[in-house]
Design a protein around this nucleic acid. Structure first.
Lengths: 223, 223
DNA sequence: GTCTATACGCAGATAGAC
DNA sequence: GTCTATCTGCGTATAGAC
């Protein structure tokens, strides 16, 4: 059984995701759950207070899912898959919350951005989330490099940020570009992503297998 | 010499980018250029009309820059670099317009998204822009594959969308994540991006050079 | 073309009854 | 805890003078 406070938070997240901060009115939220506008003020000091609570709620929950999802995973490929899946599932849950179909992701980045330029508490919470996410990716990349599964010629820090941007960009793009359905392409997107960062098959055991071959051509030869 | 209409459009783009659609008021725009609010209605029927004009203005200009930038370019690597540079420069120009420093990109995706859920004319224009952008990327990838510069094991359509998402995601991320400065990392981001899609050195002339070597090991061996 | 004056609605927020 | 009633301010938009 959800408390009134929980209902307000859920309805707020839904409306903020659909309409953004400004266009969401407290009356809309109240109407969604069958209460009157002033009742919201019993639980929250202001619209800003309500918004900040929603962002914290989302970020806490997403951060927990992420750290849980990679616990006890040792392989970098499984880690990437797990992060990928967690982010997709989280987005799908938000999609269902706002009443979208499975095929229409929500634009969370957009909501975050709306909050950042207005409230500094939101800005700090979001920075903390991305610090966490970046560290998860860095850990995955370092394990992959150590195990010869991920290419070593890619800058780790830049790659972590690029993978985050890549995934966030996919969600964002799918909300602005009608012909792009992220879910029907999900597998080929993930496969491409892994292929681009993975160590090429021919170099995986390069040191042991290739050395004799390398010696047969002169140093410095380009081929 | 800018006409009043041009000044209104420029000031509107600036304010829409900073504050979003709802929070931008016609008084703010008028004040920015030293006119009074009702004067705007001499040039535009409504706030929606003004917004739509701004989005069309931005999209037309960006589309033109993009198609111009890849004219007469034959190599895929140069094309990617050119697209990358054009998108960065365009974003920088918008940054300067809103009064941001060079280091603080604007979030155009965010603005587009705000418009899409409200006005269908905007939605159609944006779809058209992404169609164009996607075709530019597909052309680049096809040339690259033909010339053995880009890996052939990556799905072309998915890759085109991923590269768009990647770049858009980088801009978006840099506007929500304080510790990420897209400009200081620009070179390493681009290098990583090219490396991940480029044909590995060892396979570039694979057919001719590697065949003799391949024959020395048994078929089906994983290495 | 640009202005002053103004209509009208809805937003966030509060007072106080039950 | 939840409501009705109400305050105050700002938004878009229009009428009409100059």
């Amino acid at each position: 059984m959800l408390t009134t406070k929980d209902k307000i938070i859920t309805a707020s997240i839904k409306n903020f995701l659909i309409w953004g901060y400004e266009k969401t009115s407290l009356s809309m939220i109240a109407e969604d759950i069958g209460i009157k506008k002033p009742s919201i003020y019993y639980y929250f000091r202001s619209k800003e207070d309500l918004f900040t609570t929603c962002i914290n709620y989302i970020m806490d929950s997403l951060e927990k899912s992420l750290t849980d999802s990679i616990k006890n995973i040792k392989s970098s490929k499984q880690m990437l898959e797990s992060i990928f899946t967690t982010l997709f599932e989280f987005n799908s849950n938000l999609s269902l919350l706002v009443g979208n179909s499975y095929d229409k992701p929500v634009n969370m980045l957009n909501l975050l951005h709306l909050g950042i330029n207005r409230f500094c508490a939101v800005k700090e919470r979001i920075d903390r989330y991305y610090d966490t996410l970046k560290n998860v990716f860095i850990k995955m990349i370092e394990i992959g490099k150590k195990d010869n599964k991920i290419r070593k010629d890619l800058d780790t820090n830049a790659l972590a940020l690029e993978l985050i941007a890549w995934i966030e960009g996919l969600f964002a793009l799918s909300t602005v570009y009608s012909s792009f359905n992220i879910n029907t392409m999900r597998n080929s997107l993930y496969n491409n992503m892994w292929k681009t960062i993975a160590m090429p098959e021919s170099q995986k055991n390069g040191f042991f297998k290739k050395k004799p071959f390398s010696k047969t051509i002169s140093l410095g030869t380009k081929w």
